[in-house]
Design a protein around this nucleic acid. Structure first.
Lengths: 349, 349
DNA sequence: TAATTTTACGCAAACGTTTGTGTAAACTTC
DNA sequence: GAAGTTTACACAAACGTTTGCGTAAAATTA
């Protein structure tokens, strides 16, 4: 009842041919006569022959597989990115091996090693928050396994990256608020240690200077991204001697926390305009939603990153001249006003 | 500069040993003397030796890999499930190969074939909406590749499944509304062709009969799950001669559509209580949110399904006696009131 | 028709492992 | 000290492919 999948060898025996002939026949090799070629292909179809990819992989030294390592699959930003990655990979006949680091640098290291042992042809990575050292990635270069980082990219030079320019989006956001008449604009930022926080801060400062306004450092408060941290940060802004009329929040979660906190304080939520960075698909359906969002295009980031990786793989095989080119794609983040924020929803579940 | 990963053969040559000895030494085989064993392991560490898994896979006839096929990764329900799957698989030293059917039965078929060729040890599947035939899955049995379906499960007997009992959850939901005093409870259901719609309908009817109330078929309207379809269905309920005071919607998306439509009609949203089936993480933050939700536990479904698959794989290897046992796990869906609906949010992006 | 080219296929190595079996040397036992 | 046992390793096959090379037979050429 239970049987092993048919092999080339079986076909060869049945037809009294050699395995090499069968292999070539199946690949339409010109050195094989038409009649035998057809005979082989006919039997192959009859037996439902399909090549054993594990054998092919070993023989070819490549697996047509790309590995994806990211912090958390259930986070919408990442699952959207993976969705794009898988789709593109599928079109180009690649398969996707997936793993989550859960923002743990050590696990990330172990995963890189595992991916290497699986002989993935290339790697797509969005870094864990705690990753400080990048040797395990450097290590891959020696084995000619290309890596493309997206969104959470490393600070080391020489790596291929796709990221979103948060800074310009932030400048846009603050400028938008200024145009709406706001003069005291607060920002609830992430931890100072995060690159992402820095980008937002610089974007803020840039907007002020562009509009010839004085930058007040106390308008930007850091927080640890927890709900209570957010509440504290908000408190700090609310008790500021200048009355804050708008707040740019680190992301949609923080915006949610702010709305919740304001309600808890019995403060009229409409007094304060919010702008955040889109990472929650449903945010536009909230009643006290941000007036605008800085869109980060997870889908596009996934696409671009995959495109680059496939390019690198292709060039690796064709030994192209531009062997050393470093890809650094920056997607401009974009301010999206609430009115156009609500996307067409497809019901998928 | 670019080098190939070290192999067992290289170690053997350097130490003037045979490959078999090296292999056994690395596996702590008792037949190898302590001194050589240590010598081998030392050199292996120095060279950063790691086994080439493609070779191991070919030799063992298994890959320690499980394939996951589902409709859409960017859909929260599925990404949550995959997250659980990956996590559990990782703990048991399995790797996850992932692919999306985009609800296309043909692509699903192709993916099954591809997974088979990749020699995944087992498969986790949530069916495409359009899947009608299951031969390609049956086919896997012949090759001893177990399949566990979750959430979107097939109607054929003899397959391992994990699913959520929507019916009882629906009964709970309707009963809950009845207890709140509602007497005319509408339901915006999915297409009649979907199993999921049937479950909801039966749950509704069950609740009515349990509470000795007459079931009015016109209270349940089908819709195609689009926004305009929802609007039409809603219209039908609103113009019903009996005044509908509560609606059970097919899922969170439909609830959203309903809220949007009511607002557009300038109808006070608070007049109508909504209950839906949770699949959107943010729903509890909406202002006019459902008063309760039927939770479907994507994470748990992923966990259970993976657990079963790993069990099957283990039993396959140990030739256990219960070879023919069919797993049918049904998770009771659960009505969650709004008050306890808001989950602790972890900021991950 | 003999020499040359072309056609159509087979042989065997290679990819990197694992594992059953064979066999010297070392060690036991009486 | 001979027979038997154990220890510690080597040999070689196997997993299912791909591919460089070799070689008969057939087809072409002169």
């Amino acid at each position: 009842m239970i049987s092993k999948p048919p092999t080339i060898k079986q076909i060869a025996e049945q037809l009294k041919l050699s395995v090499s002939t069968v292999s070539r026949a199946l690949h339409d090799h010109p050195g094989i006569g038409l009649t035998t070629r057809l005979k082989v292909q006919k039997l192959a179809k009859e037996l439902n022959y399909e090549p054993n990819l594990t054998a092919v992989f070993l023989q070819q030294g490549k697996t047509n597989t790309i590995g994806v390592i990211l912090p958390e699959l259930s986070e919408h930003f990442f699952s959207a990115a993976v969705s794009a990655i898988e789709e593109m990979a599928y079109q180009r006949n690649y398969t996707v091996l997936i793993a989550q680091s859960h923002d743990d640098a050590e696990k990330e290291m172990a995963l890189v090693e595992k991916m290497k042992n699986h002989r993935v042809d290339g790697l797509l990575v969005s870094l864990a928050k705690t990753t400080r050292s990048f040797e395990h990635f450097e290590n891959l270069k020696r084995f000619n396994i290309p890596v493309v980082f997206f969104d959470r990219i490393p600070s080391i030079p020489g790596s291929h990256t796709v990221s979103c320019n948060i800074e310009t989006g932030t400048t846009e956001a603050v400028t938008y608020l200024l145009k709406k008449g706001h003069r005291t604009i607060g920002m609830i930022n992430g931890p100072e240690s995060m690159l992402a926080s820095n980008d937002r801060k610089h974007g803020y400062i840039e907007a002020m200077s562009k509009n010839r306004l004085k930058y007040d450092p106390s308008m930007i408060v850091n927080c640890d991204l927890s709900e209570t941290g957010t509440r504290k940060a908000l408190q700090q802004l609310l008790t500021h001697k200048r009355k804050v009329t708008a707040i740019v929040t680190f992301n949609d979660y923080i915006a949610l926390f702010v709305v919740t906190a304001l309600k808890a304080l019995n403060q009229d939520v409409r007094d304060i305009d919010l702008i955040s960075y889109a990472n929650l698909p449903l945010i536009s359906y909230l009643d006290h939603r941000p007036v605008a969002s800085v869109e980060q295009f997870p889908f596009m980031q996934g696409q671009k990153a995959t495109g680059i990786l496939l390019d690198l793989l292709y060039n690796k095989n064709t030994q192209s001249a531009d062997g050393g080119a470093i890809y650094k794609v920056v997607i401009e983040s974009q301010l999206v006003e609430d009115s156009s924020l609500k996307k067409a929803i497809k019901v998928l579940k």
